[in-house]
Amino acid sequence: MHIHSRQSDLPSDAPPGGLVLEATHLTFQYAGGKTAVDDVTVPFYAGELAMIVGPNGSGKSTLLQLLLGHLTPSGGTITVHEQNITDLHPLQRAALLSYVPQSPQVSFAYSVQEIVAMGLWAHQRREPGLSVLKADQPMLDRMVQAMWDLDIHALAQRTYDELSAGERQRVAIARALVQDTPIMLLDEPTAALDVWHQLELLDHLKALARDRKKAIIWVTHDLNHARTNANRVLIMHEGKLAAHGQADQVLTAEILEPIYRVHVTLRNDHLLFSRFPGH
C-alpha cells in the first residue's frame, strides 16, 4: 500500500505569520521497541489552526507530546522559535507551549481556581520581583477571563473531584489559556464536551489564532470537524505523516480510504463513512 505524500503542495494561502514550531525527521521509539513516530517532518505557523487526525495508535498523541518536549525524540529535532526544544529549560518551554491532555489528571482535591492559577507558574517564576505566592493584577484578570471563557467561573471554589468529565476538561483548557503561550497543543480537547461547549471552544480558539496569531495544534478524531474548521490538516498513519495540507485537499476518499479502511463519500460538503462490502 502506497500512500501518496502531499508535502510538496504546501498551502498556497498559508496563514500570515512566521514559522513557530518545526519537526525535522522526528522519530520516537518506545522502550519496547515500537516505533510510534517515524521520520515526521512538519512545520507549524503562527496564526493557524492545525488539526492532526489519524486512526487509533497512529502516533497522534505521541507526536503531540514530542512537540511539547515532554518525550525525548529518538531521532530528529524539534525547533521552537528557532531554538532546539531540548536546549530550553522547562520554564522557558512553558512560556512557549501549553498543553491540554486527553484526560487531565489531578492527584489531590484542588479547587478549580487553584488549578487554573497553576497555569501562571512559569510566568511567576520567570518575571523577577513577582512573588511566587501572589499573582499580580493582570494575571488575575487573565485568570478570571479564562474561567469566563470556558464557562467555569461558577465552579471556581469547587474541588476537582466533584467535577464532571467535561468540566474537568474545561478546567484543563482554562489552565492552558492562562499560560497564554504562542503555541497551544490540545489532545482531543472536545472529547467530553457537549455541543454548545464544543462550539464555544472552537470559536474561542479560532479567535485566538486569528487575532492573537497563536499557533493551535489540535488532535481530533472528527474528520468533518477538521474539514470544516482547520486551516491545515495532518494525517498520521502508522507513525508516519501520511499527508498534510489544506483540508479539502487531504481529506479525500483517495487518501482516507486506505488509512481508515472504510468507504468514504463526500455529500453536501460532508464526509460520509461506510464499511466496505464484504468486511
Binding site: 511539547l68 522547562p90 518551554r93 501549553s98 498543553y99 512559569a122 499560560q179 497543543l185
Partner: peptide, 10 residues
Amino acid sequence: FSDAEAHSLG
C-alpha cells in the same frame, strides 16, 4: 498533575 501536564506547566 500527570507528567506531561506538569512538564507543560514548567
